[in-house]
């Protein structure tokens, strides 16, 4: 690979809003429930099944309907299914870690497993939102009952108030025994949660 400077780089295509009409027929049930593998296969992802119940809210507290929500997380052993970890013996063959759903009303339920501790990171799920009126925005959700939150470098870079906004609360159990966590993702206004800049690096 030849070293490249900033000026060698091609200019990226502009991101644009997804608009209100992301096709519902592009939905894939396998991406909405990562706590199981394809049906008919004797296989089960490792880890504790959880359900993340979320509400996407706009600055007036109204549900942000029609939002496309994407999830990215490590497996139960804290390993991401990315090229960097290819060949890692802790890869779970039955778990990829990428999820996607369209929150028709603005509420969603994402079934998955509790992500594991990853090096210095507390269990977390990266959430990407594509919604009408905005281009892609990203954040990361934590779990309020995890002790490791106290030493997570991302969480600890935020104020206590902001940390709480990114912490899903454990609220009961589903009929199937999954732990239920709830989170309000306020996109704008008074209770706006922190969103992160994955284009700009510190010091750039």
């Amino acid at each position: 690979m030849k070293p490249s400077t900033q000026s060698d780089l091609l200019k990226p295509t502009n991101e644009d809003t997804v608009g209100p009409y992301f096709p519902i027929n592009f939905s894939d049930p396998l991406l909405e429930d990562l706590s199981r593998f394809e049906s008919g296969i004797t296989a089960q992802p490792q880890g504790i099944p959880i359900i993340l119940k979320g509400r996407l809210l706009d600055r007036f507290g109204e549900l942000a309907n029609g939002t496309l929500v994407e999830f990215w997380q490590a497996n139960a052993k804290g390993v991401y299914r990315s090229p960097k970890h290819e060949g890692d013996s802790d890869i779970d063959p039955w778990f990829w870690g990428y999820g996607r759903l369209r929150a028709e009303s603005g509420e969603f339920e994402f079934k998955t497993i509790m992500p594991g501790l990853c090096a210095d990171r507390a269990p977390n799920i990266t959430i990407t939102l594509f919604s009408d009126g905005i281009s892609r925005i990203v954040t990361q959700i934590f779990f309020a009952d995890q002790e490791s939150n106290a030493s997570d470098p991302l969480l600890q870079s935020l104020s206590g108030e902001d940390q709480a906004k990114l912490s899903a609360r454990h609220e009961g159990q589903s009929d199937c025994g999954s732990k239920i966590y709830t989170i309000d993702i306020v996109m704008a206004g008074e209770n706006e949660i922190p969103f992160f800049d994955d284009l700009i690096r510190e010091g750039e």
Binding site: F60, A64, S157, A188, E192, D197, D198
Partner: peptide, 12 residues
């Protein structure tokens, strides 16, 4: 209605 008003945070 939906655009975050605060600056995006840097990622460690």
């Amino acid at each position: 209605q939906r655009t975050p008003r605060n600056r995006l945070r840097l990622i460690p």
